[in-house]
């Protein structure tokens, strides 16, 4: 809806700012403030301190960052490869089959992630599929949860790719592998990077399934935050949250720069 009158526009902006502020910025601001709070009993903290940050840094923060980054990177990379492969493979199937399989891919994201974790735990706790208590089961859980998004992103990219590019390439003598490497994938690159970024962000914030399956010694950031706040250590939890936000943000901005450069080149 287009609103032309000046007061109308001001109202629209106010509503937008309010919504954005209340829903997105306020929680973040509260967490930021908590992470720096000395004591917080009144409306505002009674004093500010960086003590919580030094606590978490001296504590398990770095191990958690590492666990989250490694999990996120590996799960996203595998999801990217398999999601891309699935999208490419499904494209040449007949349309009905492709749609059905496409929907199947999304089922894990419709199920509560706790249930996904539980399912994996049950499924992989007997030989020969004994993954229970390994790092691998964390990876598998993340992979299951994020692969639908990589698949969806790459499929969307493929759907927008004019078949002319690939057909011209074929007619010029490019075999399928050459065509994939030199035409299809480069043209899909922006979607691949976006898919990777989204997967990574999802993985960084994943809690429900991870809580169910994580082994001792592989505590991801969200799990650490959860257990800190669960123990009543809200300020430390807030500090760790800010670390999580910072790491994810740096990552996404880095990816954004890569795609931005690609789009310009």
């Amino acid at each position: 809806m287009l609103v032309w009158s000046r007061p109308g526009r001001i109202v629209i902006w106010l509503v937008f700012t309010l919504l954005f502020g209340v829903l997105f910025l306020a929680p973040l601001a509260v967490i930021l403030l908590s992470s720096l709070a000395d004591q917080w009993n009144g409306v505002l903290p009674s004093g500010l301190t960086t003590e919580h940050y030094s606590d978490v840094v001296q504590g398990a923060a770095w191990k958690a960052v590492k666990a989250s980054l490694v999990t996120g990177f590996l799960a996203s990379a595998v999801a990217l490869v398999s999601g891309t492969w699935a999208a490419l493979a499904l494209r040449i199937q007949d349309a009905t089959l492709a749609r059905v399989l496409g929907v199947l891919f999304f089922i894990p994201s419709a199920v509560p992630s706790v249930s996904v974790g539980l399912g994996l735990l049950v499924a992989f706790s007997h030989p020969p599929l004994l993954l229970n208590g390994t790092i691998a089961i964390v990876m598998v859980a993340h992979f299951v949860l994020i692969s639908a998004f990589t698949f969806g992103n790459v499929s969307a990219g493929l759907a927008r790719l004019s078949p002319d590019f690939e057909q011209v390439a074929s007619s010029l003598g490019a075999r399928p592998a050459y065509r994939l490497r030199h035409v299809t994938l480069p043209l899909l690159a922006p979607y691949l990077v976006a898919a990777f970024g989204l997967s990574f962000a999802l993985s960084m914030g994943e809690l429900g399934a991870t809580v169910m399956v994580y082994p001792p010694g592989w505590v991801t950031l969200p799990v650490s935050i959860f257990s800190l706040t669960d123990r009543g250590d809200v300020f430390a939890g807030a500090a760790l949250t800010m670390v999580l936000v910072a790491v994810t943000l740096i990552l996404l901005l880095g990816l954004e720069r890569v795609t931005g450069r690609q789009a310009r080149s």
């Binding site: 004019s162 002319d164 057909q167 011209v168 074929s170 007619s171 010029l172 003598g173």
Partner: peptide
Amino acid sequence: PYERGLGMVVQNYA
């Protein structure tokens, strides 16, 4: 197609 030895030009150039 890649073994037919043709050249192809399409409407939107591609």
